[in-house]
Amino acid sequence: MKIRLISLLGFMLMTAVTQACSSPQTPQAQIPTTASPAGVSSDQGTLVIRANGEDFVRQGFTSKDGWKITFDNVYVTLAAVTAYQTEPPYDAQADAELKVKQQVSLDQPQTVDLAAGDATAEPVLVGEVTAPAGRYNALSWKMPKATTGEANGYALMLVGTATKGGQSLPFVLKVDEELGYQCGEFVGEQRKGTLKAGDKADLEATFHFDHLFGDAKTPPTDDLNKQALGFQPLANLAKDGKVDVDVATLKQSLSAEDFRKFQAILPSLGHVGEGHCKETTLAKN
């Protein structure tokens, strides 16, 4: 009797185990795991803001109309420089709303010379700011008129020499139009703007002066060259072997079409690497 009962219990146990073991063999739909969203850490690091005129400014270049241009100084004044963590990522070309999760700004306006240093110089330091860790995927800045220094009274001032066919023309181009740029993600060889706690990350305000003069290395049919002013219209304004012009002079002396081109180029000077920006100051005026 006892053996029979043990046998019965063993059989029931085996049956139960069999059923239990068969269950995991039933295929189950696999639900992908959800990654935790990127959060803003309370820890901080240092954001380094730089300004870059690229090799066009540091090494010179040839304009679309054949003038070899070199720069002694390229002064820009940057103010209200602000780095943002945005979500969704800000897209300047889509002109979408800037939805800010976090932002930090440099305190003081700063006039920098993009042509400082030699042909291989690093982009110019504008300032550093302590910031919460996170991904800074947008940058904005204003370009007011400088209040001191060589560029006093101008938001942008280009000083250099243009050479063509044995003719060499020193030039000074002074822009007192105040500008502002609002940009999204830096577009370049490397990503920028990922700040880890206790670490440094850099962002860059980039200026594309080939938009103004054109680039002989780019086909004449390229939009860049079709929209660029070139240097020849400025060379035509030379007096005593030198070009020294401001916006008022250009308005007065350039053809209506060339002045329109010049004005249309100003909003496109500001970039983040190769990423385009939205001009915010002229557009309001």
């Binding site: 992908p32 795991t33 959800t34 990654a35 969203p37 990127a38 979500e87 969704p88 990522p89 070309q93 999204g184 993600e185 577009v187 370049g188 594309h208 080939d210 780019t218 690497g273 190769e274 990423g275 385009h276």
Partner: peptide, 19 residues
Amino acid sequence: DSKPGTWQVKVRSAGHGDV
């Protein structure tokens, strides 16, 4: 899609680019 979130595609050529 086991990595949900914002994916980014960067396209560059000869000084032009966008994301």
